[in-house]
C-alpha cells in the first residue's frame, strides 16, 4: 500500500521523540495562558509544530494523543474533543504541504483554515455529548443564540466560528515564529524540512493578493453566518 508507506516515511525517530515534547508543550502552554488570564487557549501550538515539520499524520497523531492524555491525567472534560485536535493536526499538516508555512501572511490563511476545521468538527461533539452547552465560558454566547430561537447546530457553530479564528491564527503565528527560530541543521533531521524553507523575494503583489484572499474569506464567512442565522 503506497499510502501507508508514505505515512510510515513521515515517522522517523526524531518525530517519535518530538511528539511527547509537543504534547507537553500543548498542555503546559494551555496552563501558562490560564496563569496570564488571556482569553485564548493556545493549546495546539505543539500539534501545529509537529504537523508542519513532520507531516499531516504526525500532527494528527499528536493532537489526538494530546487530548487523550490531557483528558486522562488532568481534566477528563478534554477527552471527548480528541477528534478536533486530530483534525487540527491534519489540516495544519496539509497547509504546510501546500506551502502555507513559508511566510507570515500565508500563515494567517493557514490559521484561518485550521480554525474553520476546528469549528466544524467541534460542533457535533458539543451537540451530541453536551447537548450544545458545554462547561466553557463561550457557551454563554451559545445560550444567548439558543434563547433567540436558533437551532442547536447553528448556535454552536456560530459561537465556535466567532471564538476559533483568533485562537488558531495566533497559534499558527506562534508556531511559525518558533520554527523560524530553530536552526536549519536541526530542522533538516525531521521528515519535512522543505515545508518551512523561507520563500525568497515574497513580493508585494503576492502580499496584496493574500490580504485580498483573507478579506474575501472573512466576507464569505460572514455571508454564510448571516445565511445560517437569517
Amino acid at each position: 500500500m503506497k499510502f501507508f508507506e508514505d505515512i510510515k516515511k513521515d515517522f522517523n525517530t526524531m518525530i517519535w521523540v518530538l511528539i511527547p515534547v509537543a504534547i507537553a508543550i500543548n498542555i503546559v502552554m494551555g496552563q501558562i495562558v490560564v496563569i496570564l488570564k488571556l482569553p485564548i487557549y493556545l493549546d495546539s501550538i505543539g500539534t501545529v509544530l509537529v504537523a508542519v515539520i513532520g507531516g499531516p499524520w504526525a500532527g494528527a497523531l499528536t493532537g489526538a494523543l494530546s487530548n487523550t492524555i490531557w483528558g486522562l491525567l488532568i481534566d477528563p472534560n478534554a477527552l471527548p474533543w480528541w477528534p478536533v485536535a486530530f483534525f487540527i493536526g491534519l489540516v495544519a499538516g496539509f497547509c504546510a504541504k501546500g506551502g502555507l508555512f513559508k511566510t507570515w501572511w500565508k500563515v494567517l490563511i493557514a490559521g484561518f483554515l485550521i480554525a474553520l476545521t476546528a469549528a466544524i468538527v467541534s460542533t457535533p461533539i458539543a451537540v451530541y455529548i453536551y447537548g450544545g452547552i458545554t462547561a466553557s465560558g463561550s457557551s454563554f454566547i451559545t445560550a444567548y443564540l439558543l434563547q433567540t430561537g436558533q437551532g442547536v447546530f447553528q448556535s454552536v457553530f456560530s459561537t465556535n466560528f466567532l471564538v476559533e479564528p483568533v485562537d488558531k491564527i495566533s497559534t499558527s503565528l506562534l508556531a511559525f515564529a518558533i520554527i523560524q527560530g530553530l536552526s536549519s541543521r536541526f530542522l533538516a533531521r525531521f521528515p519535512r524540512p522543505e515545508n518551512v524553507e523561507i520563500e525568497q523575494g515574497a513580493e508585494r503583489t503576492q502580499l496584496f493578493i493574500a490580504v485580498g484572499i483573507v478579506i474575501l474569506l472573512v466576507l464569505i464567512a460572514a455571508f454564510v453566518l448571516v445565511k445560517i442565522l437569517g
Binding site: V28, I32, I178, G181
Partner: peptide, 25 residues
Amino acid sequence: NRIGALVPLVGPLVFGSLVEVEERA
C-alpha cells in the same frame, strides 16, 4: 502587558525543550 509577557515565557520554554529532542533521539 500580559500578551507581551507571552513571548519571554514561551521562547525559553519551547526552545529549551526542543534542544533535548536530538540527544534523546
